[in-house]
Computed example of a mutant assay.
Amino acid sequence: MAYMIITGLICGALLGFVMQRGRFCLTGGFRDMYLAKNNRMFYALLVAIAVQSVGVFLLIDMGVFEYSAGTLPIVAVIVGSFIFGIGIILAGGCATGTWYRAGEGLIGSWIALAGYMLMSTIMKSGVLAPINQQIQGSSVLPTNSIADTFGINHWFIIIPFVAIVAFILFKQLTKPKVAIPALKAKRTGLAHILFEKRWNPFVTAALIGVIALIAWPLSAATGRVFGLGITTPSANILQYLTTGDSTFINWGVFLVLGIFAGSFIAAKGSKEFRFRMPDVKTGINSFVGGNLMGIGASLAGGCSIGNGLVMTAAMTWQGWIGLIFMILGTWTASYFVYVRPRQKAKAAKLKEQVAAV
Score class of each variant (00 low, 15 high):
Ala261Phe: 12
Val225His: 00
Gly229Glu: 08
Ala235Ile: 10
Asp279Pro: 08
Thr247Ala: 13
Leu238Asp: 06
Thr242Gly: 08
Val280Glu: 08
Lys268Tyr: 10
Ile259Ala: 01
Thr231Cys: 03
Ile284His: 10
Thr243Gln: 05
Gly227Phe: 00
Asp245Asn: 15
Ser263Cys: 06
Val225Thr: 14
Gly252Lys: 03
Thr232Cys: 01
Phe275Leu: 15
Ser286Ile: 09
Ile230Lys: 00
Leu255Asn: 09
Asp279Gln: 10
Asn250Thr: 05
Trp251Ala: 00
Phe287Cys: 10
Ser286Glu: 08
Ile249Asn: 01
Gly223Leu: 11
Leu241Asn: 07
Gly244Ala: 07
Phe275Lys: 13
Gly227Arg: 04
Gly252Glu: 01
Phe264Asn: 05
Val280Cys: 10
Gly229Cys: 10
Gly227Asn: 07
Thr243Ala: 09
Gly283His: 05
Phe275Cys: 07
Ala235Pro: 01
Phe264Leu: 15
Arg224Lys: 13
Ala267Gly: 11
Lys281Asn: 12
Thr282His: 07
Phe260Asp: 02
Gly269Trp: 11
Ser246Val: 15
Thr282Glu: 14
Ile259Val: 15
Gly229Ser: 15
Ile265Leu: 13
Gly258Lys: 01
Leu255Met: 12
Gly269Ser: 11
Val288Glu: 06
Glu272Ser: 13
Ser234Glu: 09
Arg274Thr: 14
Leu255Asp: 02
Phe248Cys: 02
Phe287Asn: 09
Ile284Gln: 09
Phe226Arg: 09
Ser263Asp: 00
Leu255Ala: 05
Thr247Glu: 09
Lys271Pro: 04
Gly258Ile: 00
Ser270Tyr: 03
Glu272Pro: 02
Ala235Asn: 06
Ile230Glu: 04
Arg274Gln: 14
Arg224Cys: 02
Ser270Met: 11
Val280Pro: 00
Ala261Gly: 08
Pro278Trp: 11
Ser270Glu: 04
Ser263Val: 06
Val225Pro: 01
Gln239Cys: 02
Gly269Gln: 10
Ile237Ser: 01
Gly283Val: 12
Leu238Gly: 09
Thr243Asn: 03
Lys271Ala: 13
Val280Phe: 14
Pro233Arg: 10
Leu255Phe: 15
Phe273Ser: 10
Arg224Asn: 11
Thr231Gly: 03
Phe275Tyr: 13
Leu241Phe: 14
Thr231Trp: 01
Ala235Arg: 02
Val280Gln: 10
Gln239His: 08
Asp245Arg: 04
Gly283Asp: 09
Ala266Tyr: 04
Thr243Glu: 04
Lys268Leu: 13
Asn285Tyr: 12
Val280Trp: 13
Ile284Cys: 12
Met277Trp: 12
Thr247Tyr: 00
Met277Pro: 03
Val225Glu: 01
Thr243Leu: 06
Gly223Lys: 08
Ser263Tyr: 01
Gly269His: 11
Thr242Cys: 07
Ala261Gln: 04
Ser286Val: 08
Gln239Lys: 13
Gly229Val: 11
Leu241Ala: 13
Asn250Glu: 03
Gly244Met: 06
Ser263Gly: 15
